[in-house]
Design a protein around this nucleic acid. Structure first.
Lengths: 207, 207
DNA sequence: AGCTTTCGCTACGAGTCGTAGCGTAATGGC
DNA sequence: GCCATTACGCTACGACTCGTAGCGAAAGCT
């Protein structure tokens, strides 16, 4: 049961500076040439490390890009805005802010596409990216229940299922708007979406 | 102003059989090796045509895959099921049936990712894939309005905006569920999603 | 010290890319 | 029937990327 922080392994430790330089370089190349034309040679050169160093740490392009993009999601947090509606808008705008960055656009969808044929990759994406987003939604619901805006769910399994549903709706809508429709996810859209999510289609759309 | 059906151009016409063989071969290779390892040489060999023939018709991998995947969406149609809720479930299950196919999974997301850096490609995707889906949603709303389930929208611009919103929500949620969460979009999920979309989050989730 | 692991560098075969060149096949116009 | 025009199959090509191997040097630990 070794400590996961490098343990007490003998030999020269891996340079932490190299890791950050590689991930930063990956994002730069992602912005400039996109995912399909990104080569590990380019990344290594730009990061100032040897190509072999890169291959010692990452097994391939997919894993590298996942880690590089995952760092973008470190900044995610959700301040309490007082109401469920305001919190939902906050989540939407947080997602949108990250997805607006070109390195996230081109990288994220590509690795998701690859993950349809690679279970290990999908799991990696889930842990380092998706779960981090889902945490925000969980937090928002807990607040809403504390405020009495949403009823508490007695059944744990049922609760988890509706959470997954809500998360797919929010994240899916934002991603689809930003990447497929290629329209901006701005405050106006976030407000309309939130109204739809809370009140449903049959209610009056205009507030 | 030439007729778009091949006009009266001199010379040997392009083989229609070759086109269908190439697109079918593209989907096969997509299933077997995925998008990133798909090579145009493989596709040409499997289709029984020369590699040069392929390059004469498509400018690259992205355009080819878009056309190959787009054919999967030909089967889209939406029978009138009598109620708005039933129609929404129909749309959801239609999308899901296509997205469940491996050639759609691996190909569609990949070209969407590439389209973030290629406006022409995004436009091609929109015309041959996205608009075809959106048509279904438009149709469903028209029926609901005819039934009196939804109020008619007087303002055309406002109407178009809400349509885009609804479409992003439906398509986004299905895609996210199927590809990111990697969970099945079955009748149960479709029913839950429809209830959420129509009634909103604040309503009782269990029917 | 001695041991272990990482690093930068160079070089390599294998595979893919997209294109050029050639002769042949299939059309329409005269 | 002949000719101009275009598509087709085939071969070959330089350029590029891939992922790995081998080497000496550097940086840690005991």
């Amino acid at each position: 049961m070794q400590s996961r922080t490098s343990a007490a392994r003998p030999g020269r430790p891996r340079s932490a500076a190299a890791a950050t330089a590689i991930l930063a370089a990956t994002r730069e190349v992602l912005v400039e040439v996109g995912w399909s034309k990104l080569t590990l040679g380019d990344v290594a050169t730009r990061a100032g490390v040897a190509k072999t160093t890169l291959y010692r740490r990452w097994s391939g392009k997919n894993e590298l890009v996942v880690d590089a993009v995952a760092e973008l999601f470190d900044e995610l947090e959700l301040p309490d805005r007082g109401t469920l509606a305001a919190d939902v808008e906050g989540v939407v705008l947080q997602f949108a802010a990250i997805l607006a960055r070109p390195e996230a656009k081109s990288g994220l969808m590509a690795v998701v596409a690859e993950s349809t044929r690679d279970d290990a990759l999908r799991q990696r994406i889930g842990e380092s990216i998706v779960d981090r987003q889902k945490r925000l939604v969980l937090e928002g619901r807990a607040r809403a229940q504390a405020r009495g805006e949403l009823p508490p769910e007695p059944d744990a399994a049922e609760s988890a299922r509706t959470m997954d549903l809500i998360f797919d709706v929010i994240a899916g809508a934002v991603v689809h708007r930003a990447l497929v429709s290629a329209e901006p996810v701005d405050a106006t859209w976030a407000r309309s979406f939130t109204a739809l999510l809370l009140n449903g289609l049959t209610a009056a759309t205009t507030d």
